[in-house]
Structure formats: structure tokens, C-alpha cells
């Protein structure tokens, strides 16, 4: 039973941005991750899929050390992530939350926040730089002077994305970034993310419950259930011909739901 849950050897990427081995996580006395072995390919777009409560977000939060696992090892580019200085790690591995948090002030002020935190490590963002970042995130550059708290959910999420880019990260972690958005807005954001991965050579790891988004953007998929990896592999193959019955069931249920 246990060996069946391991990802197939072919599913382990040649060059991994993240390498997780035997990762367990416990929150409020509940086991949220129960022995995760997973490699997330560098330069790839990994979609973490699975039913709600399967541990996707718990896993994502480990990758920039918003949380530490109860046990197990996590490597980033071949080094245990605990060996990196945590603030530097978080600048290299950006995080976009499910519900975007805007800091009070203008959009420009939000994009200058990271520089304000570490003036020596993060280059300053002037207005033209901010406009470029907004364009990259798929937002009208004229938003630069708007009050961030007044924006719509989709606009805020794009500002949050642009803000995550201000530290010039190598990796972006995305926790259901489209959960609060209309389907069309969500699709456009996922396309933006997909383009960003290529234009900025980013490694993307996105938690999603919308299979559609995995199909649009993912190059690699890991299916989680009850805190374990059911299967992981190249997105095309896995989404077309899942090897595990539970993945098949999950994909079919998802297709039915979203038409």
C-alpha cells in the first residue's frame, strides 16, 4: 500500500528546485502531511492538485519556510533550506497568498515595500520600474498611483504578484491565487503566470483546485490526498492518463464540475 503511494521513478525530475523526503507536518494535533517524497522541477510550472484538506497549502508553506515541517528534509537547489538565511530565502522564493493582502498606501508604495525592508539587498523601485512590473503582472501601468486598498480582488492579486516580483525571486509559490476571482479573470491571471515563468525563467509552484488552470499552465503535476502524494509526473501525461485510480476519480469529478 505504502509503496504504491511513491511517485514513479520517471516522475522524479532530473534537476529539482525542491527535493522533499519523508516530510511530515502536524497542525493542531492533526497530521496534514504524512510522508511526502517529491521533487519539484527547476524552471517548471508545478500544479499541486487534490481535494481540499489534502495538504497542498501546508506543503507550499514549507517551501519558503513560512512553516517548518515536523520531520523530514527539504532541499532547495541541493541544500537543506534551513541552511539558507531565512530572509534571503524568502526574497528568492516569493509567495502569493490566496487572499491578497495590500499594505495601506498607493500601489507604488506596495511595490517599494520590499526595498524598505532591506535597502542593501533589494534594489529600489522607481515609478517607471513599478509600471514595468505592473505590465508584467498584466495590470495597466497607470494603476501605479492608485490606492491599493481600493482595488478589486483581481487587481489586488496582480499587485500582489508584481510585489512578489520586486525581490527578483527565482521561485514563485502561489496558493490558490485565483480562488477569489471570476473564472475569466482567473484564466487570464494563469496565462500571465505561465508567460512570466518563461520570460523571467521562474520556477512556479501553484496550489489549485481548478483543473483547468493546471491544463493551461502546468508542466508538472503532483496529486495529493490525505497528506500523501498519490502520484506526480509530467503534466501532459498525468492529466491525460493518470496511473492511479484516485487521481482518475479526482480528475473526472473535476471535469464534471467545471464542464
Amino acid at each position: 500500500m505504502r509503496s504504491e503511494l511513491r511517485p514513479a521513478a520517471a516522475g522524479l525530475a532530473a534537476e529539482a528546485a525542491f527535493r522533499l523526503r519523508g516530510v511530515r507536518q502536524v497542525r493542531d494535533g492533526r497530521t496534514t502531511l504524512d510522508g511526502i517524497d517529491l521533487d519539484l522541477p527547476r524552471g517548471g510550472f508545478t500544479a499541486l492538485i487534490g481535494p481540499s484538506g489534502s495538504g497542498k497549502t501546508s506543503l507550499l508553506r514549507l517551501l519558503n519556510r513560512l512553516d517548518d515541517p515536523a520531520s523530514g528534509t527539504i532541499e532547495f537547489l541541493g541544500r537543506p533550506i534551513a541552511e539558507y538565511r531565512v530572509r534571503e530565502l524568502r526574497r528568492r522564493i516569493g509567495f502569493v497568498f490566496q487572499a491578497p493582502v495590500m499594505f495601506p498606501g498607493t500601489v507604488l508604495a506596495n511595490l517599494q515595500a520590499a526595498h524598505g525592508l532591506a535597502k542593501a539587498e533589494v534594489p529600489p523601485v522607481d515609478e517607471s520600474g513599478a509600471r514595468e512590473l505592473l505590465a508584467l503582472a498584466g495590470l495597466d501601468p497607470d494603476f501605479v498611483g492608485r490606492q491599493a486598498l481600493d482595488l478589486s480582488g483581481g487587481e489586488k492579486q496582480r499587485v500582489a504578484l508584481a510585489r512578489a516580483l520586486t525581490t527578483a525571486p527565482e521561485v514563485l509559490l502561489l496558493d490558490e491565487p485565483t480562488a477569489a476571482l471570476d473564472p475569466e479573470v482567473a484564466d487570464r491571471l494563469v496565462h500571465t503566470l505561465s508567460e512570466l515563468r518563461v520570460s523571467r525563467s521562474l520556477t512556479m509552484v501553484m496550489v489549485t483546485h481548478r483543473l483547468r488552470e493546471a491544463r493551461i499552465a502546468a508542466t508538472y503535476v503532483a496529486m495529493l490526498e490525505a497528506g500523501r502524494v498519490v502520484e506526480a509526473g509530467e503534466a501532459g501525461a498525468l492529466l491525460r492518463e493518470p496511473q492511479q485510480a484516485r487521481t482518475r476519480a479526482f480528475l473526472q469529478a473535476g471535469e464534471g464540475e467545471l464542464g
Binding site: 519558503n64 513560512l66 530572509r87 534571503e88 524568502r90 526574497r91 516569493g94 509567495f95 497568498f97 487572499a99 493582502v101 499594505f103 515595500a113 520590499a114 525592508l117 532591506a118 539587498e121 533589494v122 500582489a160 510585489r163 512578489a164 520586486t166 525581490t167
Partner: peptide
């Protein structure tokens, strides 16, 4: 909490 974690994720110290 969400705001505090958003700052941490940008590389803030706990104090910041």
C-alpha cells in the same frame, strides 16, 4: 495574521 505573514514573505524581520 495575513498582513504579518505577507510582510514575512517579502523578507521582513519579525520586528518589521
Amino acid at each position: 495574521r495575513a498582513e504579518v505573514e505577507a510582510w514575512l514573505a517579502l523578507g521582513a524581520t519579525p520586528g518589521q
